[in-house]
Design a protein around this nucleic acid. Structure first.
Length: 422
RNA sequence: GACCCGUUCGUCUAAUGGUUAGGACUCCAGAUUUUCAUUCUGGCAAUAGGGGUUCGACUCCCCUACGGGUUGCCA
């Protein structure tokens, strides 16, 4: 019977949550969930200069936005007595020595082999001291370095699986040496590939798409972003691509994590977002879309554009014509309608038919008959009508526009438009 | 420089020695749609290079090239 799985995400507060960090958190969370384990959040806040309230908040907000619940958070800054106690163990074991006021850990001079859950067997040779000088574990000011606190934390928190970025691969033998010196059992390690910019360069703070907090502002929905970053460096091995968080838990495994760095592709991320918006129930879509509007479009207006947007930030523009009585008429479609000599007459005839309509429950149905009565195809009337009502060549279903606008407003808009034609 | 990891269409990826090397995004063409979007069909496009091993290599081994990482009293 093996111990229950405990994974962790251990970010340092830098003021934003990096996309790569977000994915590391996600993979740890998914792995714990999949195996019925626990996911721990630990804030590595030993660097006081960067450790601000806002910096910590950025981590929590990002995690909450993704929908990842955690145990904790634990703060390294509150655990000094634990570190002191564990440091004494190294002193007692004679594994540390003083050097210029700092304390160095004496490496065992031998090859260290690890079994990485993603990378497989990796061996780093510590025989040659010049390549691997003894590392400082305690600074001359008495504080402890990352390698030491990280290991002590993982040990004392009972972490069973450490899933982290590949930038830590070369740190792992150092950590293994410490754990061995403590006489403890090491967790299992899994190093996941890094996320690069679209040009292959390293993704850093200022780069497009780097900060998780920006995605919401850009109109991405959280499940879509989670879906997208899961696909970066991991594959379900079949042809499926769109998943909910729940489906991700079912499909996730460390064995199917890739070993080469992935590049961030904004276009595919937007496509994934569109797929998630499309999959929303109309009510859920309305809920999500309303938050992006300064004006207050009705639910019906929002529902009519669900399949027209790929980013939630496109919503205000897509519904603007409903709410603006003086909505602009795009010049290109206007010119097109002007080129159609019969358009004005057809619209006028349609207005008359509308006028006589006592029941406005299905106004779209009379378009075809009106066109026919004047020897035209429905299309010859529908396109001008669309421009008249919305000013745009593309938009919601015509029937929806008619019903939402209502009889009086439709008549007014047709009149306004036909005046422009002459 | 040294050490470590990696390399399949432009991008994300599938193919655990035998496939016409598959899917997705983008792009192009066509169908559907009044239009745009959606949807559907088709198309362009890849095993970094060179040596082995093997009847047979994207897959295993070696070399080279390229990319990334590490090399702190940062985390």
């Amino acid at each position: 019977m093996s111990a229950p799985v405990r994974t962790r995400f251990a970010p340092s507060p830098t003021g934003y949550l990096h996309l790569g960090g977000a994915r590391t958190a996600l993979f740890n969370w998914l792995y714990a969930k999949k195996l019925g384990g626990t996911f721990v959040l630990r804030v590595e806040d030993t660097d006081e200069a960067r450790n601000t309230e806002e910096a910590r908040a950025a981590i929590f907000e990002g995690m909450e936005w993704m929908g990842l619940a955690w145990e904790g958070p634990f703060y390294q800054s509150e655990r000094s007595d634990i570190y002191l106690k564990w440091f004494e163990k190294l002193v007692t074991a004679d594994r540390v020595y003083e050097d210029d006021g700092a304390w160095r850990f004496r490496f065992d001079r031998k090859p260290i082999t690890m079994q990485d859950l993603v990378c497989g067997e990796v061996t780093i040779d510590y025989t040659d001291e010049s390549n691997t000088p003894d590392m400082v574990v305690r600074r001359s000011d008495g504080s402890f370095v990352f390698h030491f606190v990280n290991v002590v934390d993982d040990l004392t928190m009972g972490i069973t699986h450490v899933i982290r970025g590949e930038d830590h691969l070369m740190n792992t033998p150092k950590h293994l040496q410490l754990i061995e010196a403590f006489g403890e059992t090491a967790p299992q390690y899994a190093h996941i590939p890094l996320i690069l910019n679209s040009d292959g360069s390293k993704m850093s703070k200022r780069d497009v798409g780097a900060a998780l907090g920006d995605y919401s502002k850009q109109g991405f929905s959280s499940p879509a972003v989670v879906n997208f970053i899961a696909l970066l460096g991991w594959s379900p091995k079949d042809d499926s691509e769109i998943f909910s968080l729940q489906e991700l838990i079912e499909k996730f495994s460390l064995e199917s994590v890739n070993r080469s760095p992935g590049r961030f592709d904004a276009e595919k991320c937007e496509w994934v977002n569109q797929q998630h918006l499309l999959a929303l129930t109309p009510d859920k879509f309305v809920e999500a879309a309303a938050g992006y509007c300064e004006t207050t479009p009705t639910p019906e207006m929002l529902k009519s554009i669900q399949e027209k947007v790929s980013l939630l930030t496109q919503v205000p523009d897509a519904v603007s014509f409903y709410l603006d009585p003086e909505y602009p008429i795009d010049s290109e479609p206007l010119a097109k309608v002007k080129g159609n000599d019969s358009a004005g007459a057809l619209l006028t005839a349609l207005a008359e038919t509308f006028q006589g309509l006592t029941d406005w429950s299905d106004p779209k149905s009379v378009i075809g008959s009106t066109a026919k009565a004047h020897g035209a195809k429905p299309g010859q009337l529908m396109f001008p009508l669309r421009i008249a009502l919305s000013g745009k060549a593309g938009g919601p279903d015509l029937g929806a526009i008619l019903e939402i606008l209502g009889k009086e407003e439709c008549l007014r808009r047709i009149q306004r438009f036909t005046a422009l034609l002459s």
